[in-house]
Design a protein around this nucleic acid. Structure first.
Lengths: 239, 239
DNA sequence: GATTCCGGAGAACAGTTGTTGACTGCATGG
DNA sequence: CCATGCAGTCAACAACTGTTCTCCGGAATC
């Protein structure tokens, strides 16, 4: 109601947040390209013209959303790609991290997944760039892992991209899994959602496991044929 | 101009195609949710009301597009996942198949990638279902591969999903790579596009290689811990 | 205490959208 | 050869869009 604390800029940032949040919520059932400026202001409860005080266009708002959505993703690197524990522990921890993140910021996750290949060029490119930064950081973390000894920078980046793609795909699966309802502890029955969630978790874990195995044997045949590098993993599969 | 061949239904299907094609082209720079009915008819050159003779809504048109886009994808299974040749040959063939498909049907590919997580529920679900069918067929093909001997059905499906995701991701990368211009043979210089294309091809091949390696060693530790199945591939990586 | 700054409101604008009903011309089937 | 079916047209509708300009009131500054 009133403005108990803070200056005027505080109020400005508050309605800015309201705009961002309203947009984020509206974007759960549509894409940014079809999101109207008036639609957002209506949801916030301000005049359409007030929108321009905060963003130049919906596209602009979208880019801002990319920023905070990807930023919220960053801390995941520490828990999901860290080099502590055995392989199975690490996989479990990674999957749990992703699940937790989707629980905390579902709208952010959905936004990224939807707009990554969406119809708004500026937002697409913003996501691509931010994701590239993120991937590079993952690559850096992977480099510190003893398993990565002897890997070329290119191969490490490839692996990081694979992991990041996997992370997003897994997050998307968690999003699509029927929500485990808002009641975390009230009922102890499994519920439809929890079953689906666990199925997703197990599949995701298996995927990571396969990648992890491939990683372990990546350098098994150091130099076979002349070319540039990786040895062909050819084995008798001739039909 | 005239109607030399065919009945009246031929003409109907022709404008239906025109609608689909126009939509497909318009969708290269926007998403289905923001695609207007009038926009499509305007591009085709017919009255807006004529649209209803073919589709009930733009959503409906989208679902139709899903059908033909995914159908065009099916023949890829034979060339990209077949069990002939050594691993390296197969990987190269898979990447080439995908590149070729993107060259032939770029709009289809873009449509799938964009709308797979897009803002139109009906289309999203149509893609998910069709993609599930596709994946199951891939799994069936993989099952015939000697490498898959001893694999559980669940694991095979997981691998198929991984391959399908990889296929789409690779296709998307080829789409984003600057086009190699419409002139295939006129100039023999590499050009910006061709360099980018080859970079994409090499990265995609490496990804497939890693997955292939993981596949080969998937059953290395048949039964380690009690649980349900796959042995933990844990190896000394403790930080 | 007076003045400037600025987030927001209001009205109005020209365009656009999806959808309707009644109509027309032409290929088709009796 | 006539009657029906049906793709496509036209006009009109209410609703909505993004954007501009003008104005207001309260905080911030001097």
């Amino acid at each position: 109601m009133s403005h108990p604390l803070g200056t005027r800029q505080a109020q400005k940032q508050r309605t800015r947040r309201a705009l961002l949040d309203a947009a984020l919520e509206l974007l759960e059932e549509q894409s940014l390209g079809s999101l109207g400026l008036r639609e957002v202001t209506r949801a916030v409860g301000i005049a359409p013209t007030a929108f321009y005080r905060h963003f130049r266009s919906v596209e602009d708002l979208g880019v801002a959303l990319v920023g905070e959505a990807l930023e919220s993703l960053h801390p995941l690197i520490g828990t999901a790609v860290s080099a502590t524990g055995d392989a199975e522990e690490r996989i479990a921890r990674a999957v749990e991290s992703i699940a937790g993140h989707v629980d905390r910021y579902p709208a952010h996750m959905r936004f990224i997944v939807r707009e990554r290949h969406g119809g708004v060029r500026a937002v697409r490119e913003a996501i691509r760039d931010q994701l590239a930064r993120f991937t590079e950081e993952v690559a850096k973390t992977l480099a510190e892992d003893p398993v990565s000894a002897g890997w070329s920078a290119d191969d490490l980046l490839m692996l990081a991209q694979l992991y990041v793609d996997q992370m997003i795909a897994t997050g998307c699966l968690f999003l699509e899994a029927p929500a485990s309802a808002g009641t975390p502890v009230t009922t102890s029955e499994p519920g439809h959602g929890d079953r689906a969630r666990e199925r997703v978790a197990r599949t995701a874990a298996r995927r990571l496991r396969l990648i992890s195995i491939g990683r372990l044997h990546w350098l098994d045949r150091p130099a076979d044929e002349g070319t540039s590098g990786r040895g062909a993993a050819g084995v008798g599969t001739a039909g």
